[in-house]
């Protein structure tokens, strides 16, 4: 159960993991996510589901902190402690006409299932992906296949436009591109900017929020977000919300709630990376 079938560092700091979990593979719909735990003391980290096969599902995990660090150091064949999911509401997938998809770093993987599903509904897909530099771009061929127009933006200008999703988006809209629906997945800052651009043109915008989560079934409330003045839970009501209603500032403050604890956890129990143990004592349970 929860065995890591395949694991590869797709681009620096982003790992492609294929995990065997039959019912997630069967039931997951585009836009849903899973919560993983590397070991019983690890945190519970939410990951968007990118692809599903017979009894395995694929995720693109950004290593950001101790728990994703532990997973990043695991080898194929090892087992995760727990996999919960598929969680969250599936993304709205209907025929809209012209659909814009924006993906940033881990979001490049996350928008792929949406692109496939929306394409199947006959939409015309315009995809914009962003990354810090050309060596951080992945899944390009697959995304090109499902997109009618495909743009790349890098913040150092090493490939495509020198800028971000919002730079390309702004240019497209000013050149007369019309969109009937927009979805953005990536870092909060990018989703906020893109929502602010689509707002004046009243393009229906959906964003998948990456809040801190605990149980993932609506009990603890630490993933609460105020959307249109009302408090919503990203794990059960989301993760997809109307980009124009989200209170971004509050979301950002919440995400930084545990900065101190995260830093101290590096200190008091600095994560003993598995390579450390394997090299010296060969204790790993392979």
């Amino acid at each position: 159960m929860y065995e890591i079938v395949e694991k590869r560092e797709e681009v620096p700091n982003i790992h492609r993991l294929i995990i065997r979990e039959p019912n997630v593979a069967k039931k997951a719909k585009p836009g849903q996510f899973v919560i993983l735990m590397p070991d019983e003391k690890g945190e519970r980290v939410p990951m968007s589901i990118v692809e599903t096969k017979k009894d395995t599902f694929t995720i693109f995990m950004l290593e950001l902190g101790i728990t994703t660090g532990k997973i990043a150091n695991m080898h194929p064949g090892e087992k995760l402690y727990a996999v919960a999911g598929p969680l969250g509401q599936p993304a709205e997938i209907e025929y809209y006409g012209n659909v814009l998809l924006g993906g940033g770093c881990y979001g490049i993987g996350a928008i792929y299932p949406l692109a496939k599903a929306l394409k199947a509904k006959g939409n015309r897909i315009v995809t914009i992906i962003e990354a810090r530099s050309k060596y951080l771009i992945y899944l390009e061929e697959k995304l090109r296949i499902v997109s009618d127009e495909f743009y790349i933006a890098t913040s150092d200008g090493s490939r495509g436009t020198n800028g971000h999703v919002q730079t390309v988006l702004d240019r497209l809209i000013k050149n007369g591109h019309r969109f009937d629906h927009a979805k953005f997945i990536g870092c909060t800052y990018m989703m906020m900017n893109c929502s602010n651009i689509t707002a004046p043109y009243r393009i229906p915008t959906r964003v998948a929020l990456n809040t801190i989560m605990l149980d993932g079934s609506g009990m603890c409330g630490c993933c609460r977000v105020s959307v249109g003045g009302k408090t919503k839970f990203a794990c059960v009501d989301g993760p997809e919300f109307d980009g124009h209603q989200v209170d971004w500032a509050e979301l950002m403050k919440r995400k930084a709630a545990y900065q101190e604890a995260e830093m101290i956890s590096y200190q008091t129990s600095p994560h003993i990376c598995r390579a450390l143990i394997e090299n010296y004592f060969g204790e790993s349970d392979e």
């Binding site: 700091n13 290593e63 810090r132 906020m192 995400k255 930084a256 900065q259």
Partner: peptide
């Protein structure tokens, strides 16, 4: 906007 350093494993930019 971002509240703190993103604690990345492999460093690909100043904010990580």
């Amino acid at each position: 906007f971002n509240s703190g350093i993103m604690k990345a494993g492999v460093i690909t930019g100043c904010n990580t």
